[in-house]
Design a protein around this nucleic acid. Structure first.
Lengths: 202, 202
DNA sequence: CGGGTAGCAGTACGGCTGTATGGTAATCGG
DNA sequence: CCGATTACCATACAGCCGTACTGCTACCCG
């Protein structure tokens, strides 16, 4: 066997460049040649690792949401370790999804660009559904936990409550990116939405 | 003066074809040649009415949100004429924004496609901000009205409450389009979010 | 009833796209 | 140390893109 390279590392490198490009220039700005330049490699090498653009897109999206999921999970671990109320932990982890600083803004743009494309690309739509389902399950579990702890009044449908909370997160993210991070207290608004479910926790 | 044509009608015709194309194929599917074919005219004629693609985009977006605003306003008129509680009127008018049937789905896709593009196009961003501001002002006014009628408890920040409601609408729309109109009772979820503000109305 | 202008179509052009292909360099097993 | 195999680059290619330009046609005004 000849000349070995770390495939995972290469793919991650390409995905990183992809995210930078997508965040900065939007979906239309991501082409093989631009991507190659951004990643500091040749177009041919990208082809070597990704058979087609569809495959590349799907990998990049999957990678992006996976990374984000890990970030959220880390936040949850932190909060749980600190012994905070579940509502606070939930809020902290969801704020992670709002484009309130440069880093989250870039991540938001990646999500937004790929989700928009998912409307017309079944492969991406599948990834979007899966990642959305994961997030929904997580929030629903937190709500259920809240019920068990008496922070949420019994009888609420955890999944629907989770949907409402996640919808607010998504919609607030869109508002923040459009009107600027300082235009309104997005965290407070989200906090109030969460509090509307976790009534017992205040 | 020679051979006159109805500019407004032509532009509307082009904008209509633009919306069909954008809803069906996404932003990447809208090109001058495809648009001309969809509208049943020549590429040259589109150029005759729109100096560049930027101008066309901006017009099409503006036209789309204007039409939507009119639809919402009509709903409000209807509800007000029927003497419904403001919370109900609000809910009815906001449900108009959810992609629950084919027509609203197409409209949602147009909004989504153009809003995604607005992240990287200042001209579109301006239109998005303006239309978003209009909607926000409308919902905030309804909330204020609710305070005056005793349907909303005094002391709530109408604008922030409106932001929370609109965020839920937007986020729910994204969820609906991803998981299907029948996956969950989106109207009920939105209704509960509205009810969380209009506590006095129930 | 011409002259001129606006409506409209057709085509040509440079540039960028994603993909296919050929070649070179490097590194492994034997 | 050498052949096989993989990493990687460079270039070629067909196709679509947005725009510029040319020319024809139909109409209004004087």
């Amino acid at each position: 066997m000849p000349r070995v390279a770390d495939h995972d590392q290469r793919r991650a490198q390409i995905a990183r460049a992809f995210r930078r490009l997508l965040a900065a220039e939007g979906f239309a700005g991501v082409s093989f040649s631009r991507l190659a330049a951004e990643a500091g490699i040749s177009v041919g090498l990208i082809q070597h690792y990704f058979a087609s653009k569809d495959v590349l897109l799907r990998f990049a999206y999957d990678d992006a949401v996976r990374r984000l999921g890990e970030r959220v999970r880390d936040r949850v671990q932190e909060g749980a370790a600190a012994g905070l109320p579940v509502a606070d932990v939930l809020l902290d982890s969801l704020v992670e999804l709002l484009p309130l600083d440069a880093e989250r803004d870039a991540e938001y743009r990646v999500r937004q660009g790929l989700q928009a494309q998912a409307l017309h690309d079944e492969g991406l739509a599948e990834v979007a559904r899966r990642s959305g389902g994961d997030l929904l399950a997580y929030v629903a579990a937190v709500v259920d936990d809240g019920v068990a702890r008496g922070e949420v009044e019994p009888g609420v449908d955890a999944v629907l409550a989770a949907r409402a909370i996640l919808a607010a997160v998504q919609g607030l993210a869109d508002q923040v990116v459009l009107s600027g991070a300082d235009a309104f207290p997005a965290r407070d608004v989200l906090g109030r939405v969460v509090a509307a479910v976790f009534t017992g926790g205040r």
